[in-house]
Amino acid sequence: MVNYVWLGMIVFGILVAGANGQVEVVTRAALEGADKAVKTSLNLIAIITFWLGIMKLAEAAGLVRALARLVRPVTRFLFPGVPANHPAMGAIIMNLSANILGLGNAATPMGLIAMQELQKLNRGDPRTATGAMCTFLALNTSCITLIPTTIIGIRVMYGSTDPTAIVGTTIFATACGMTVAVIMDRMLRVFYGRQG
């Protein structure tokens, strides 16, 4: 799937640029994309290093375990393949909480830690996603943000009389998306065969 999407974007892009007689745009765009990717990854070094340190402390203090036990009824349903006391559980919960609170800076490192822990549970091919990883990412990308701070800020900037008017509609739309994400994930997991 990812192969088709990736190739499709490049091939279609180059064809359209060629048809428009501005094929040289492609070269510049490719280099700009690569530049942005490397900068993003390098920017992540600081924040991931920092949160990995904090997470190790939380784990050593037994806090991750305690947190995991707290939400066990929900996670047992969503992640049947992950042992309840596994560190992956704690990282998943912290990632989702950070997402809900709109703390993007904390959410990404927590999510990457969760992925590392889930990879440790991967009994199959390490290059293939496990069911638990797919469930986690479905939740992560469809997750509710209670206060979408960025867009509220932009609305304020352009003189909105009611900048938070969209909070209710946003929560409604996200809730619909999240429900579908969980249902789709469950169905596809069965369809693709159960692993992890």
Partner: peptide, 18 residues
């Protein structure tokens, strides 16, 4: 980003549900 950090290249159905 997330799959890349653990070296997963086969996403299976993750794109569809996302």
């Amino acid at each position: 980003l997330y799959f890349g950090s653990v070296g997963v290249t086969r996403y299976r159905y993750a794109i569809i549900s996302g």
